[in-house]
Simulated assay, not measured.
Amino acid sequence: MLWYKMLHILTMTSWMAGIFYLPRIYVHYVEGVAAGEDIRRLQIMARKLFGFMTVMAVLTLGFGMWLWMAYWRGAGAWLHAKLLFVLLLIGYHIWCYVYLKRMQQNNLHLSSRQLRLFNELPLLVFVPILILVVIKPF
Rank of each mutant, 00 (worst) to 15 (best):
1 M>Y: 03
2 L>K: 10
2 L>C: 02
3 W>D: 03
4 Y>S: 11
4 Y>L: 08
5 K>Q: 08
6 M>F: 10
10 L>A: 11
10 L>Q: 03
11 T>G: 11
11 T>C: 13
12 M>V: 15
12 M>D: 04
13 T>H: 03
15 W>D: 06
16 M>W: 02
17 A>H: 07
18 G>Q: 01
21 Y>T: 04
22 L>Q: 01
22 L>I: 04
22 L>V: 08
22 L>T: 04
23 P>T: 13
23 P>V: 05
24 R>N: 05
24 R>V: 09
25 I>G: 07
26 Y>G: 07
28 H>I: 08
28 H>N: 12
28 H>A: 14
28 H>W: 08
30 V>R: 05
30 V>E: 01
34 A>Y: 01
35 A>R: 15
36 G>V: 15
37 E>F: 02
39 I>V: 15
39 I>L: 00
42 L>A: 10
43 Q>H: 13
43 Q>Y: 02
45 M>K: 15
46 A>K: 03
47 R>L: 02
47 R>A: 10
50 F>I: 03
50 F>Q: 01
52 F>W: 08
53 M>R: 13
54 T>A: 04
56 M>T: 04
60 T>I: 02
61 L>P: 08
61 L>C: 13
62 G>K: 05
63 F>I: 03
64 G>E: 03
64 G>Q: 15
65 M>A: 08
66 W>R: 12
66 W>C: 06
67 L>W: 03
67 L>V: 14
71 Y>N: 03
72 W>T: 12
72 W>Q: 15
74 G>R: 06
74 G>E: 02
75 A>I: 10
75 A>W: 13
77 A>K: 15
78 W>I: 03
79 L>E: 06
80 H>T: 09
80 H>N: 11
80 H>M: 10
81 A>L: 09
86 V>K: 00
88 L>R: 11
88 L>T: 14
89 L>H: 04
93 H>P: 02
95 W>Q: 14
97 Y>P: 04
100 L>M: 08
102 R>T: 10
104 Q>R: 15
105 Q>I: 06
105 Q>H: 07
107 N>P: 03
107 N>C: 00
108 L>P: 01
110 L>H: 09
110 L>E: 12
111 S>C: 11
111 S>G: 15
112 S>W: 04
112 S>P: 04
114 Q>F: 01
115 L>Q: 14
117 L>P: 00
119 N>C: 08
119 N>V: 07
120 E>A: 02
121 L>P: 00
123 L>P: 03
124 L>K: 03
125 V>N: 00
127 V>R: 07
127 V>Y: 02
128 P>H: 10
129 I>K: 15
130 L>C: 13
130 L>A: 12
131 I>W: 07
132 L>S: 12
133 V>H: 02
134 V>H: 05
135 I>D: 09
135 I>F: 12
135 I>M: 13
138 F>L: 10
